[in-house]
Simulated scan of single mutants.
Amino acid sequence: MTKIRADMMTGTPKTIKQIKQDIQKIANDDTVNGSVPLFWLSDWLLHVIDKPAIFLITDENYQLTEDELSRFNVGLHKMQHGTPLAYLTGQQAFWSLDFKVNEHTLIPRPDTEVLVEQTLNWIKSQPSSDGQKRLLDLGTGSGCIAVSLAYELQQESMSKTAERWQVVAVDLSAEALKVAEYNAAINGVADIHFIQSSWYDGLAVEEPSFDVIVSNPPYIDESDEHLARLTAEPISALSAPNHGLADIEYIVQQAPSYLHAGGLLVIEHGFAQGIAVRQVLTESGFTEVRTVKDFGGNDRVTLGHNRLGQN
C-alpha cells in the first residue's frame, strides 16, 4: 500500500517507463504512509491507455498524451482519497466473469468465490432429477453471486436434458438491481429473475420453493473501525446491528419457510463470526452445519441443511 505524492507524479510529457520509475520511487519511500495498493496504479494506467498488461513491458517508451496523463493523475488523486480502483474503471473480475460495478453496489471480493464454489460443489454432489430447481440469492448487489452461479448451472444444464435451474436474485436497492440485470445480460445468463425486496418480503410463502438459498449480507459491526476506510461503498450493504449479526440471524431464522426439506443454506460472514453463525444455524434447526475458510485461512462461509421433515 502506498500514498501518492503529487510532486512525484506531475510533469508532462511522461512515458510509461517514467511513470513506472515514479511508482517505484513511491514504493521505496519509507516516509510515505500507505493508502493505495501499488497494483492499482499499473491497472489504472492500463485502463487509461487501453492496452494489455504486456504493453507495460514491451512499449515502455510509449508517451502518454496530455489527456491520458491528466486522467491518470485525476484517478490517482481519487484513489488517494478513498475511491476504489473498481469504481474508477467501472468493472471488477469475479469467478470467471467480468462485472460492472458502481457506487450502488459492493465491489466483489475474491473471498466470496468460496461461497460460489461451495454451492456448486454441493449441487454437483446431488443426484440429478427431472424438473426445475430453484436457487435464491438474497441481497444480490452487483449480482456477482447469482450471475456466477447461474452461468455455471447454465453450462451444466447443457449436458443434462432434464434438470434446469432458475436463479432468483433480490435486493432492496433498485439501482443495484439495474447493475445486476446488466451483468446478467453481458455474461449471457438468462435464467435469473430479479426482484426488488427486503430479504424475503417480496417472495411468496405458500410453500417452500427453493433448493438452495445463498447470501452475502451486511455483517460488519456498526462500530467497527474498518468502516471508516470503506466510505466509498454503500454502508447499508456492509454493516448490521447486533455485532454485525442482525441480518444473518433474520435470513437464517426465516429460511426454513422458503427452503425445501434437505435444502442448502449458505451464508458469507466475517472472519470472527464462524462460531456465532454456526450457533444461529443450529438453533434454527439446520443440520450438518460447518464453516469453510477463505483463501487467507479465515472463517468465511457457513452452510447447513434444512432439517428433513420440517416442512
Rank of each mutant, 00 (worst) to 15 (best):
L46C: 09
P234A: 00
P256I: 04
L245S: 06
N187R: 01
S198N: 15
L115H: 02
S148G: 11
G263F: 02
G270N: 02
Q253I: 07
Q80P: 03
Y87W: 13
L69S: 05
A204Y: 06
I145K: 04
E163R: 01
Q154N: 09
E225K: 11
G75Y: 01
G143S: 09
L88A: 12
I248T: 06
G309A: 06
G270D: 05
R71Y: 05
E163H: 06
L230F: 07
I54C: 10
A169H: 03
M9D: 02
H226S: 13
D211K: 00
T302Q: 04
S35Q: 13
T15K: 07
G285M: 02
S198K: 10
L227T: 04
H104P: 00
E225H: 09
S142H: 03
A255T: 05
V205R: 05
T291V: 07
S215I: 04
D201L: 05
D221E: 12
L245D: 12
D130P: 14
E222K: 09
V36H: 02
V114Y: 04
D43G: 09
T287W: 00
W44Q: 07
S129H: 12
P256N: 05
N311M: 13
A86V: 03
V114R: 04
N242A: 15
L46W: 03
T291W: 06
L245Q: 12
A146F: 04
S236C: 14
Q132V: 14
S128M: 12
Q166C: 04
E103A: 12
Q253R: 11
K293A: 11
V214F: 02
I248P: 02
K3F: 08
T10G: 11
P241M: 12
S35W: 01
T10D: 10
Q155P: 00
G141I: 01
L64V: 09
S35C: 12
P110C: 13
S125E: 06
A237G: 05
L203S: 01
H104S: 08
L153P: 01
L88R: 12
T291K: 03
E283Q: 15
Q253E: 15
L149W: 02
S223F: 13
N73P: 10
H193W: 12
A237C: 01
G296H: 07
S142C: 10
R164V: 05
Q154T: 08
I275L: 15
S239G: 09
E156D: 13
A86K: 06
